[in-house]
Design a binder for these strands. Structure first.
Lengths: 220, 220
DNA sequence: ACAAAAGTGTTGAGAGTACACCCATGC
DNA sequence: GCATGGGTGTACTCTCAACACTTTTGT
């Protein structure tokens, strides 16, 4: 702690997930500058000197997507000396989950070009962003299994079918409807919230997530 | 990415666990300088400009404990602007697990005073180190439940009784011997490795961990 | 012989998994 | 009346938890 060392730069980078067109998507922005000019990258930026890491992540998130209240979770800090050709840049990565309806990409001011990509069809990414995205997908699956974060990708009121579909997309496999609903009911985390009646078939029950549901609780 | 921002400092701080005297212990060092002079803190230091985060952690670890090969895992990055009164310091925290036999505290060159503290009797810590230690304990328990990291706190050859004791210390509760051994056997991760014969009772079988055991695998 | 830890099976409860049919609505 | 997703129960398997006595050694 005695002497001054040359300092690295610190950034936050974010893997923003949503469900769109029946697929798990990640938001990418096209880099306008060197290095990796023209390549796709996950959104991020430098941490300001007086702002917390999470504040930096939320600020960047809002600049890119216009969204304020999303689930946000720190993932991992990547700090290989060679990860950025411009010099030493350590990045603290975050993942964000959002409900596609809330996001208005065109309103974003920052990035010249931002686009949703299916996780199964990602382009070549800048820096070590591929590694960050892979890590985020693992964490996402893990969290889906053990917590209720899935609900942050749904509107306030949702049907059981919608939840099941989100799980099926994230895990890339089908679940048995009866077992899935049985499990959800036994967890006792849902409130009934009317019925959805503008559908061309039997009107499904709507549910909302109970308040103060503890985060860790073994969903599947 | 356009302009230069004032840069924060980046440190690594480590929560080093071991089992000693039947208790879970954490290594603390007494701070020789302000701020928090005289307070206990977890060991750590600045990340050098050309070294990776993990290299920095291993270097500090060796300076403090003289130990090279330990289990090391990144935990979380703490970056509240006010966490260090000297200015903006972001710390990447790690946890290390070691087998007490391998550590020789007196050989450490760096810290004036280093001592093992039971996690149940920690003194007031410097900075936000209490938060880091609490986080590390949670992660430790979690990893014990789902992976085989416990074995890195044991010598190469160990008895079933020793493993069980480590689990009992970490979880602060007793397990049923038969169920515990049954579970371990069913995982098929142990090799028999002779018997321990210098004991004043029936000689227990020794075991060693199989090579290439996958890290995640539902232990308990 | 006694102290100390090692070793070993069975039973019951609960959770997970597999599986198929009828229902209510819009068109 | 037909297409579409909604909604529901039972049987089997497997895992987890509870539980007590005998064995082998050193002293």
């Amino acid at each position: 702690m005695e002497k001054e060392f040359p300092k690295p730069s610190v950034t936050v980078d974010m893997v923003i997930f949503t469900i769109l067109e029946g697929e798990l998507k990640v938001l990418l922005v096209k880099r306008a500058l060197e290095p990796f000019k023209g390549r796709w990258a996950i959104p991020g930026g430098f941490v300001r000197i007086a702002e917390s890491l999470e504040d930096a992540a939320r600020r960047e998130l809002q600049e890119e997507t216009g969204v304020k209240d999303v689930y946000l979770e720190q993932l991992y800090t990547f700090g290989e000396p060679e990860r950025d050709p411009r010099g030493r840049v350590i990045t603290v990565s975050y993942m964000a989950l959002s409900n596609a309806d809330k996001i208005n990409l065109s309103a974003s001011t920052d990035a010249a070009e931002a686009k949703w990509f299916s996780v199964s069809e990602l382009p070549k990414l800048a820096f070590d962003h591929q590694k960050i995205v892979s890590y985020a997908i693992k964490r996402l699956r893990w969290k889906f299994e053990y917590t209720s974060i899935a609900f942050s990708m749904l509107p306030e009121k949702f049907t059981l079918g919608q939840i099941q579909k989100v799980y099926e997309i994230v895990f890339e496999k089908r679940f048995d409807k009866r077992n899935f609903f049985k499990k959800l009911h036994s967890l006792n985390i849902l409130n009934e919230a009317g019925v959805k009646s503008d559908v061309p078939h039997r009107p499904p029950m709507l549910y909302s997530l109970k308040k103060n549901v503890p985060e860790i609780m073994e969903i599947l």
